[in-house]
């Protein structure tokens, strides 16, 4: 007996979740920031962000289906981090890296925040 490991499985599952997100299928929370709305799956958010883990693990928020983030959060940073959660790819460029870093800190995604720090240092 043995185990057959499908090496593509994790990526294929994540791709399907990203397709569901883009078609707004089975999404269960709307994130609002600076007048913009982003639909997502709580399970993915909780799996990837300490902030969302704290929010949705709180029994009082059990039925929360919409959440407004601090107005100082940059929607472009949030959009990049949502794409990262659903694709494992983090798009970094000089113009958005600070917004991405600040949003990663806000969302308690310290590994991504560390990567943003290293990117900033490497550019100077």
């Amino acid at each position: 007996d043995g185990c057959i490991q499908f090496t593509r499985h994790a990526g294929d599952v994540l791709l399907n979740f990203n397709r569901l997100r883009s078609r707004n299928i089975l999404t269960d929370v709307t994130i609002q920031v600076d007048g913009q709305q982003f639909h997502a799956h709580k399970a993915i958010l909780v799996a990837c962000s300490g902030f969302f883990y704290s929010v949705f693990m709180d029994p009082e928020n059990a039925n929360l289906s919409a959440i407004s983030l601090d107005p100082k959060v940059d929607p472009k940073g949030l959009s990049l981090l949502l794409d990262f959660m659903y694709t494992s790819c983090l798009n970094l460029n000089d113009s958005l890296v600070l917004a991405t870093l600040n949003t990663a800190i806000y969302l308690q995604m310290e590994h991504v925040a560390d990567t943003c720090h290293r990117f900033i240092k490497s550019r100077h």
């Binding site: 007996d1 043995g2 185990c3 057959i4 490991q5 499908f6 090496t7 593509r8 499985h9 294929d12 599952v13 791709l15 399907n16 397709r19 569901l20 883009s22 078609r23």
Partner: peptide
């Protein structure tokens, strides 16, 4: 799965959800 023979399968494992209907 330590100690169990693991065979790697490189092909697709599940269906792909299309971009649109």
């Amino acid at each position: 799965h330590e100690g169990v023979n693991t065979i790697k399968e490189m092909g697709r494992s599940i269906h792909e959800i299309p971009r649109q209907d």
